[in-house]
Amino acid sequence: MNNLAAIWLTLQLATVTTCILLFFGTVLAWWLSRTKSWAKPIIEAVTALPLVLPPTVLGFYLLVVMSPNSAIGSFWVHLTGSTLTFSFEGLVVASVIYSLPFMVQPLQNAFETVGSGPLEAAASLRASPLNAFFTVAMPLSARGFLTAIVLTFTHTIGEFGVVLMVGGNIPEETRVISIAIYEHVETLQYAAAHSLSLALLGFSFVVLLTVYTLNRRFPIRIR
């Protein structure tokens, strides 16, 4: 029962995080792929930070920023009546930041591969920039979207350090699979740890296998 609650919570977290990042990540990746601004390398570096920083560093700063004593944290308390730290909402915020590069980088790559050629062609056929994005850039980047969504989703499922720092270990609120496994091991419940770990291993492998197989059998044609 304990495990099922953790699995359900994890799936919720990964789904919400992926949906939020699908929007913001796409916007950011699109901007990065088109801009000639001097700020581009700076934004790229910031976006990539979660890849290299220890989760504890990220978690620590997030904890500081989201604590009820900070501006953002107190505003959240004022707005909702509960704290952002040690809550599901707090986990979502942390996951969005932690998984950002996994959404942005494959998308930016895909958009850059599409290039300006097809978009200019779309403009010459009277498609507005937004329309051209949905009808040309997105379909041509389909593989990039698939990769970004899968990586973001699975990476969010697998996160541990940031979640522990920001969310703690509250059943049905912040105790995701990785935390539950950690707790099982701490309390020497190896059987429970085994079943969850195996499930996670199997799930991750099947998802990645599906993606790679799809990529091989239905190559999305991009010149």
């Binding site: 050629g117 097809p118 062609a121 040309v136 389909a142 044609r221």
Partner: peptide, 11 residues
């Protein structure tokens, strides 16, 4: 505009 490289939409 007819481009040198046709630029048809492959999808």
């Amino acid at each position: 505009y007819m481009f040198q490289d046709a630029r048809l939409f492959d999808h």
